[in-house]
Design a protein around this nucleic acid. Structure first.
Lengths: 228, 228
DNA sequence: CGCACGATTCGGCGCGTACCGAAGTGTCAC
DNA sequence: GTGACACTTCGGTACGCGCCGAATCGTGCG
């Protein structure tokens, strides 16, 4: 559209602190203003100002509870926008400085949630497995096959909504597309609900549980090394 | 990724002048620095600085010819990034102020190129026609059907590349997805090459030619009002 | 009730950067 | 060669905005 409108939108993410907020919120959960401030390393007063801008612009939705202000991404479109932008970043930067940081980023690369679906090598592996078993095709687009639609219906019915059933999300660690959209969210919720995939610590990272390895092998009819 | 990296990328588009440059360049052609400066309403000196940043960041590629500096988007990914961002803008703003502006924006809404594929209501109409004739499916993703792949091969073979054959692009006038990716570029080039679709003036706007109406009706086996 | 705490508002500081005019460099035309 | 032109570099101005400390408001706990 008009240049100023585009610039205003971009400007929301063009600040280190606001960008840090958005990346933290990519886990799909609600954070308090204070948590975000601490995470980004700024004073609470600074965080307040940023949150006002992000909420006013519609990127974040807020919910007040007592003396806390909870804030989350306004929806999957916003999450998709941010991941999309992140996917266009310079190839493969920033080696980890400390051992702690290295293990944390390795865990993130292995598996994580991207708002409400799986990403990282786990997300890509699930997507690959779906393709190998004929439930997903990426030859001429990115779509579930009829068999894939039936499989998903049996697994965890997706309620109809305006949200696209399937969309691809480009991963910034793997540089490959993986399953997103309502179907991606459904699969992720199912795997976590079954206890086959679990969150690690408090962040976005997830891992395959001991019970999950065999279960995933059976679910996808393939013997990928899920436990990696 | 890291917040500062994301912020740096966003900052490139977070300026009215640079945003205007990028939107102008969305037509996929090469512009001179002077043309862009005039379009954005800034002095040549200002444009030089902005172009340096955009080129250094890899969003634009430059080509020097004599005393001219030609500049274009660095590739389809960049075009996609910008259109993607534009698609997330507030719904439907800015009514046109003048008659001239109104006719220009109406022409853009009717049909335009989005870097290298068709967009606007024409782009959506073509996509709809492909779906109606069983060449494209968006039930469980966004993909060409086998029939669609055969049709495209007969029409204008797409050379293999790392670029995805099919991808969807969300339109900011129509708010609907339309065909993009290598297939979208191929269809657009074919229609323009046949003289069925032609550029209007010097901008991004395109229209269906008189010869194009019947031709499109035959091509898509449907009687949509192509000439609209 | 009174204290602790999260969040907010306000005022002021300082950096980053967008902008331009003027002067300089290279290229093309005559 | 000389002039016109596209673009660039440089210097300087001005404005926006991110940041914080301190004071305030409101809520929850003891």
């Amino acid at each position: 559209m008009t240049a100023p409108a585009l610039a205003r939108l971009a400007a929301l993410l063009a600040d280190d602190t606001r960008a840090a907020f958005c990346l933290a919120l990519l886990d799909g959960r609600a954070w308090t203003a204070g948590e975000l401030a601490a995470r980004a390393g700024v004073a609470p007063a600074t965080a307040t100002g940023h949150l006002h801008k992000l909420v006013a612009a519609g990127l974040l939705s807020e919910q007040r509870q007592g003396r806390h202000r909870y804030v989350r991404l306004a929806g999957p479109q916003v999450a998709h926008l941010i991941e999309d932008l992140a996917a266009h970043l310079p190839p493969a930067p920033a080696p980890a400085r400390t051992l702690r940081a290295a293990t944390a980023s390795a865990a993130l690369a292995r598996g994580r949630t991207c708002y409400d679906h799986l990403a990282g090598s786990l997300g890509v592996a699930v997507t690959d497995a779906l393709e190998r078993t004929g439930r997903l095709s990426r030859d001429a687009g990115f779509a579930l096959t009829p068999a894939g639609v039936r499989w998903l219906d049996g697994l965890a019915p997706v309620r109809a909504s305006r949200r696209p059933l399937v969309r691809s999300c480009l991963d910034w660690t793997e540089r490959r597309e993986h399953l997103a959209g309502a179907a991606g969210a459904s699969v992720c919720a199912y795997l976590i609900g079954q206890g086959w995939v679990a969150r690690v610590g408090t962040g976005r990272a997830v891992r395959v549980t001991p019970a999950g390895g065999p279960a995933l092998t059976e679910l996808f009819g393939t013997d990928a090394a899920w436990s990696a």
